[in-house]
Write a protein that binds this DNA or RNA. Sequence first.
DNA 1: AGGGTATAGTTGTAGATGCAACCATGAGAG
DNA 2: CTCTCATGGTTGCATCTACAACTATACCCT
Lengths: 160, 160
Amino acid sequence: MTDTRWLDDDEQRAWLRTAAVLELMPGALDAQLSRDQDLTHFEYFALASLSEAPERTLRITELATMTNATLPRLSRVLTGLEKTALVERSACAEDRRAKNVTLTEAGWAKVVAAAPGHVENVRQLVFDRLSDEQVEQLSAITEALLGELDPQGRMFASSR
Amino acid sequence: MTDTRWLDDDEQRAWLRTAAVLELMPGALDAQLSRDQDLTHFEYFALASLSEAPERTLRITELATMTNATLPRLSRVLTGLEKTALVERSACAEDRRAKNVTLTEAGWAKVVAAAPGHVENVRQLVFDRLSDEQVEQLSAITEALLGELDPQGRMFASSR
DNA sequence: AGGGTATAGTTGTAGATGCAACCATGAGAG
DNA sequence: CTCTCATGGTTGCATCTACAACTATACCCT
């Protein structure tokens, strides 16, 4: 048990602000999407992930990994999205334990409808306030953090 | 309704990474605290906020503002913390609608016990991976974001 | 004073989420 | 072959959270 290496003033300030952003941002993202499109940010992210997959289809487990969801959570969210006909579950030929989820036409239309408002929101919340230089810095910083948070790159299967 | 200003490649990359950090960090913070101290990050943050207040006491509403919690949520969390004798509620003399929450001795001891592990965790997750320059950049970036997310500085009553 | 409105806090209730238990299928060892 | 163990997915249950309704008190205006 060694002595604690406390945060110095700069680190302290950076952390307090980061923690505040961490606390506030999810609500800001959810607010716009649920107000305008009756979607949570998680649902949007899941639909968007499907929309970029080949055949707009993924294994449930694969989607869970990409969205950092537990399987039970995703299972119930999919049940909800199935009720509004945005996705469909189907059996998986290669592995009969598994299932595929596919984005329906209505689901695709939903993503297309939701994307502009979401992007506009992200712009207002983030990019309108940052210089080009800061965007680069943010990119490098978050990449470094993901080295610890997500060493396998689970949330970046497609984008790497 | 004007055309959407889509994100360019740099912005896209920065946002994907930022969204991933936003998704993963809360779990990483909660995991350490609940494993080692049987506290959620929210509970820790509330206790820590009380520990820095004058008399280790705050109005419930004030604490709710500082922690970005709704009043019902905070009310129930306080009930839990009261059960383990980490805080105490008491009537407020100046306004008989209001109540004060005070950190007990046991609550103070809990914060003292929890802080080193939490700081160590934040170090591993964040500062060990960033250069001094990047810490400064992160500070400036998050400050800019809070300008939109928290224009009143609600989460920074004490630290500004 | 008296009435209307706003604020502080708690509680009812419904929806979301995690953990653990469960069922079905697959993969490997003998 | 079949026994054992691992994996994919769903469901039960406990907990957490938000929204709305409610009580009590304060403030304001006449």
